[in-house]
Amino acid sequence: MFEKIEVMRMARALGHHASQRQITVARNIANADTPDFKARDVQSFADSYRAASEPLRATDPRHLQAPGWSPAARQVSDETGVSPNGNSVSLEEEMLKAAEVKRSHDLSLGIYRSALDLMRTSIGRRA
């Protein structure tokens, strides 16, 4: 039943994305001293969710595409320096990513909790 509600599906996907990114960040930190290890990261949630869901369709032929200068068209590139032993892990960047992961996970739980409270209220039960 809940998989048909878009908000619930999005909250679940955000939580799954946060867990995958946490695994990737933990692997990067664990291999911070491994020679020739290249830091990895998963694609952003917006890109992965858009790729997994149905493509957006224009409801009106007069709608315009996003211009190149808008935030919607911006591409993020992570270029990090490489240490003398070939390792590209930066512990500072990984700690920032870990904080972003926690924020994403908390957001997914908050959205899920709010959606459940809304559903309980709509059927006459108080949270």
Rank of each mutant, 00 (worst) to 15 (best):
N87A: 07
M8I: 12
R12D: 12
S53N: 14
E54H: 09
G81Y: 10
K38Y: 00
D36A: 06
E54A: 15
M95S: 04
Y49H: 08
M95G: 06
R50G: 08
L107W: 06
S77L: 10
S77I: 10
S114A: 14
A72G: 14
E92C: 02
R62M: 11
Q20F: 08
H105N: 11
N85Y: 04
F37N: 03
D117V: 07
P71A: 05
E79N: 10
D41K: 02
Q75I: 00
G68M: 07
A99S: 06
L107S: 05
G15L: 09
A46P: 04
L64T: 11
I5L: 15
M1S: 13
S88A: 05
L118M: 13
I111T: 13
P84T: 03
M10P: 05
M95I: 09
T34H: 04
E92V: 00
P61M: 09
L14M: 15
H63T: 10
A32C: 00
F37H: 07
D33H: 01
L14H: 03
R120W: 09
A115C: 05
S90N: 07
I23R: 15
S83F: 08
M10C: 06
T34G: 02
V82Y: 07
A11P: 01
R74A: 13
D106V: 09
W69N: 15
H16W: 11
E6A: 15
P84Y: 04
R9I: 02
A66N: 14
Y49W: 15
V101Q: 01
A66S: 13
P55G: 04
D47G: 07
N85Q: 10
L96D: 02
D47S: 14
R62W: 10
A115H: 08
R62L: 14
T34M: 05
M95C: 00
A115T: 13
T34D: 04
A32W: 06
W69K: 14
K97C: 02
H63R: 08
D106Q: 12
Q20P: 00
A52G: 13
T24C: 04
H17L: 04
M95F: 01
S70G: 03
A72R: 15
Y49G: 08
V101H: 02
L64N: 00
D106C: 06
A30D: 01
D33P: 03
V82Q: 11
L64R: 08
